[in-house]
């Protein structure tokens, strides 16, 4: 039941991404191209997703625990740091170059195009590269 629910949630997410245009790099890049062929659609995607999630989370967090687990896995850290902000800044550069964010690219794999396979392999390589670099860094600088 837990697995079936997860599959359906993935499907709903993927349909939302597909319908909204978040998996279409041409549309995504145009949202950020204020000086050129601007398309404001993605602003509405973010707004609608946020409103639904904000209200829904309020209801969910009124419960003691999720249905299939003993507790909610929510990050407790609320402090800003250089790692967070530099990571976010770097992500934006990659998003601006490629037109894909991870959430947009994963459902697009189902389109079966060669471009999305190329991007996804690079994305996964980047994740492992950064994980390895972080490990190295925390080993050489134990006080950080």
């Amino acid at each position: 039941m837990k697995i079936v629910t997860a599959y359906i949630i993935g499907l709903i997410f993927g349909l939302g991404i597909s319908i909204s245009g978040m998996s279409n790099p041409a549309k995504v890049l145009n949202f950020f191209d204020l000086a050129g062929s601007w398309d404001g659609s993605l602003g509405l995607v973010m707004a609608a997703a946020l409103i639904v999630a904000f209200v829904g989370y309020k209801l969910v967090f009124a419960q003691n625990k999720p249905i299939f687990d003993v507790n909610f896995y929510v990050p407790a850290n609320r402090k800003l740091d250089v790692k967070l902000l530099s990571g976010a800044a770097i992500f934006g550069i990659g998003w601006g170059i490629s037109g894909f964010c991870p959430g947009g690219s994963l459902p697009a794999i189902g389109n079966g195009s060669i471009e999305i396979i190329q991007f996804t392999i690079a994305l996964i390589a980047g994740i492992f590269l950064a994980k390895a670099a972080l490990k190295l860094f925390t080993k050489t600088a134990p006080n950080s």
Binding site: L84, G87, A88, G94, W95, Q118, F119, A122, I127
Partner: peptide, 14 residues
Amino acid sequence: LVIGGLIVGCGVTL
């Protein structure tokens, strides 16, 4: 696509 993908992967991990 490939350079952007690598950069996205690093950025979202950090």
